[in-house]
Design a protein around this nucleic acid. Sequence first.
DNA 1: TTACGGATTGCACGCAAGTGCAACTCGATG
DNA 2: CATCGAGTTGCACTTGCGTGCAATCCGTAA
Lengths: 337, 337
Amino acid sequence: MPSKLFVSAQEVAERAGVSRSAVSRTFTPGASVSADTRRRVLEAAEALGYHVNHLARGLMRNESGIVCLIVSDVATPYRSALLRELTIQLQNAGKVAMFVNTDRSDGSVDRALQQAIRYRADASIILSGLPDKSITQLCLRSGQRLVLINRDDDQPGPLKINLDDYESGGKIATAFVRAGCRTLAFANSEAGTPSLMGRERGFIAAATKLGLEVVVERYGSTGYEAGRVLAQRMLTRAERPDGVFCATDLLACGFMDAARHQFGLSIPDQLCVAGFDDIEQASWSSFNLTTFAQPVMAIATQAVKWLATGGHEEEPEEAHSVRLKAELIWRGSIRKG
Amino acid sequence: MPSKLFVSAQEVAERAGVSRSAVSRTFTPGASVSADTRRRVLEAAEALGYHVNHLARGLMRNESGIVCLIVSDVATPYRSALLRELTIQLQNAGKVAMFVNTDRSDGSVDRALQQAIRYRADASIILSGLPDKSITQLCLRSGQRLVLINRDDDQPGPLKINLDDYESGGKIATAFVRAGCRTLAFANSEAGTPSLMGRERGFIAAATKLGLEVVVERYGSTGYEAGRVLAQRMLTRAERPDGVFCATDLLACGFMDAARHQFGLSIPDQLCVAGFDDIEQASWSSFNLTTFAQPVMAIATQAVKWLATGGHEEEPEEAHSVRLKAELIWRGSIRKG
DNA sequence: TTACGGATTGCACGCAAGTGCAACTCGATG
DNA sequence: CATCGAGTTGCACTTGCGTGCAATCCGTAA
């Protein structure tokens, strides 16, 4: 048990010789306090090290200022970059980020949302997994905003932020053809989330239109190791692909490393590779990877804006969905056409 | 304004036909409630979607369950890995992580700690920067636990977790000498935090003892780009170093990439490199970097243990300091001696 | 001097929980 | 049948804060 406690408004009031209300009003913008009272309160607060108790304030205002971020695999470059941007923008908007880790187990996201409810978070932003519909409804009923990032879901209510995955897949197929590639392949993870599948389908559709078939291989997670395994599977095929679109940059890094160091292939001369996310490593000269940039900043901006303004029931459902463009970052892993 | 609100214990009590106290007791382990009442309360709570308000509970218990993590550069591999481990272990300990981003500006950490105080966090864990002494004291006086990770500081009170940076520097100097290196160098950032300086000093001391001088160059941050610049500076010297210890793995990655792709050097034949942190990229075959592993799990375990048990004033000051060992991970960026 | 008006102040209540205390129930024992 | 005691239950108070309402202050105009 702590021997001493946080200092309360009561103590400040006593020291300043005013009522507790005066202290409260001093820290409430727009409230009526005389300059003199305000000064004395601020002095006392400073001397005692007083800080408004946001737990209690949240209780009163029915607005905690907390926004819950629900994520798995935080240590992943793309995830941590998005997280960084979200927390910074939330802080600038006067909110504070609460952080809940999820794993792949059933109900993990649901438990995370329950935690958000317990702390009366003003909003929850979900970067991984998909919550059960009943929990989603409970959150919305309770007046909590909800944002789903890159999780295609058709439940009405939450703000859904997605990318043009399908179109991106198409663009890269065109780039491969222009580079003279003859055998295309798509390297995906087993997970098959909607965004990954969108890239895959867009890639296949465009390639088919251009008269090329696409070999699809799926394995493991979206990480580096899976990329290596996919390379081993694909590059030992009778007809070796010479243009490979990897569903994520991490897959692409693993793929490239295996292609170079195990198969002795030269990129982009013998093999063209593209990724998705534009993680920092993609720009490293070891990879120099052509890829699509996740509009991390725009995603965060949209999410934070929604928390501040949106969420009114009467809005049309279209207003609850945002599609952002993933910009193609041209580097050196595809031959110039 | 939210049209509907979170459901309160009062509503559950009415639906279950009991008093509000009964609801409270049902959700308080060890409280006296009959099996029948408990069942009816749980049924009503389930039906209404009730979850205890942790803001109010925190107010009463004077224990919010919140632990504040104060970090800069979250998107960095080492930081995000530590963050991941901390949040997971905090969750397992029944705590919830609150997240505050800091930048390099003055008072950034102080503002973060004030945020922690406002939300009456049970503890704050500081991964970046160093707070002002007055704020530290305020936190401790308020009964808040404090953990400083890799920030050498001599203030009594907080738990300080540090590594054997100095000894690690020594080990790697020995390894370089054993590999036949003749010209040693240390690549550091301008920042010069105690942990970075510890590695530097340990490296120099051991090298000197072995009869070799060490060229030290400092530039920028601890990131990839700074590593490239350092390589350009060091590898154009008259006497080119052939054994370089980089203060972090990211520096080492940048250094190696520049050494290979701009200077055409072969690693480890013409140049030995070592890093520190053991980020995921160090194990990628493009780098295959010999480095020291941050004991991320042990760090988190120590921190969380301290929150649960430690922090009693009467403990000797030695109990407030933990030194952990960074394990040398031998890969292929240093020749076998 | 008195009345008026605007600004300031304090009281008291409410938010959602936990808990000591007293009252209550109920079965068992004397 | 009265008493005891263990087990439940509810009342009322507490936590730190915001805020409506009524009371007060002060300066100015009638």
